[in-house]
């Protein structure tokens, strides 16, 4: 056995070498982009744009006002965008969402709500439904699971207009409540992942708890949630990451509640306008780094959770 392992380690085939080289080049390209973005975010606009110092270290000769982390301070103070209100007809009458000017804190709060809280709600709903359909075997549960499979298999395109119309009818389009309702859903791959997880789980714990007199709710909160906590955290982190980066959904369904990703996208596309023109490329890059660095911190802190369990239809502990 040892001899086989040694041989395996020593044998470098041309294919392996090519694959290794491609992976090295790929990795360098990713790391280069991130490092370049961060380095640029430390420069002044004069340095990067006017004197075309695209790859060098920040040159302190040009303006002490926009150096090093000053761009991040600028983002914190001046990251603002005009959010236009809108009005529409719901079943309960005309509904108006007012206009206002969103600053960094507003976007941070919206992000905390959307990516922080609602992602957790979504993970919790997936977990709960996965448990209920796995452990409460009845026809209704089978229909629930079957429907999810069927809708995932059917490539139905273009139901966003109908979703928007439904949210408008309920009078919750473009509101915090609407965001909550919209995200309170279990459709998707992670519901099936939880379902498979709970199906494989032994009933022993549950039955023992019931024998001891625990209610269904108590069984769920005291036994099931702790057992599934790792899985819940993994799914939550994946939802969090998706929601953190998601500006498309915000743009379409909740345009009056810009998140950080939406704000960064707007800033990168054009200037914010008004008193907070972020016209410099270094400032735009600082904005992207504001979006990136928390994710990198999260990723490296929870790497095993995020990467150890990334698979379609597979579950690992």
């Amino acid at each position: 056995m040892k001899k086989t392992k040694k041989n395996k380690a020593k044998k470098i085939t041309p294919l392996k070498a090519i694959v290794f080289t491609v992976l090295v080049v790929y990795s360098i390209s990713i790391i280069f982009m991130l490092c370049w973005g961060f380095l640029t975010s430390l420069k002044s606009t004069i340095d990067f744009t006017d004197f075309k110092n695209h790859f060098g270290l920040p040159d302190s000769k040009y303006s002490s006002d926009e150096m090093l982390f000053a761009n991040y301070g600028y983002i914190w103070q001046n990251f603002q965008l005009n959010v236009n209100g809108n009005s529409y007809y719901s079943l309960f009458g005309e509904h108006t969402v007012p206009t206002y000017r969103a600053n960094f804190l507003t976007m941070l709060i919206n992000t905390a709500y959307y990516a922080g809280l609602l992602a957790f709600v979504q993970a919790l709903v997936c977990m709960t439904m996965g448990y209920m359909t796995a452990k409460y075997k009845n026809k209704f549960a089978a229909v629930i699971v079957g429907t999810v499979y069927a809708l995932m298999a059917l490539p139905i395109v273009g139901s966003q207009p109908a979703e928007i119309s439904l949210l408008m009818d309920l009078g919750v389009y473009n509101t915090y409540a609407g965001m909550f309702i919209h995200k309170f859903n279990y459709g998707g791959i992670y519901f099936l992942v939880f379902n498979a997880f709970f199906t494989a789980m032994s009933d022993t714990y549950i039955e023992a708890a019931e024998i001891d007199g625990a209610s269904q709710f108590r069984v769920y909160t005291s036994i099931i949630i702790p057992l599934a906590a790792k899985m819940l955290v993994m799914v939550y982190l994946l939802y969090f990451i998706t929601a953190w980066n998601d500006y498309n959904t915000v743009l379409v369904y909740y345009p009056s509640f810009p998140t950080l990703s939406y704000g960064v996208w707007r800033m990168a596309q054009s200037n914010m306008g008004g008193d907070s023109d972020t016209q410099g490329v270094p400032q735009k890059f600082a904005g992207t780094m504001v979006l990136t660095i928390p994710l990198l911190v999260l990723f490296f802190s929870f790497r095993n959770y995020i990467m150890g369990n990334v698979s379609t239809g597979g579950v690992k502990e």
């Binding site: 507003t106 919206n110 957790f120 906590a229």
Partner: peptide, 24 residues
């Protein structure tokens, strides 16, 4: 891990009371 989950649940309850108007 339990604390992490519990704190998220607590935040859910607290932040669930956010009004319908946009912050800011």
């Amino acid at each position: 891990m339990k604390k992490f989950v519990a704190s998220i649940l607590a935040a859910t309850c607290v932040l669930g009371a956010i009004g319908c108007g946009p912050v800011g």
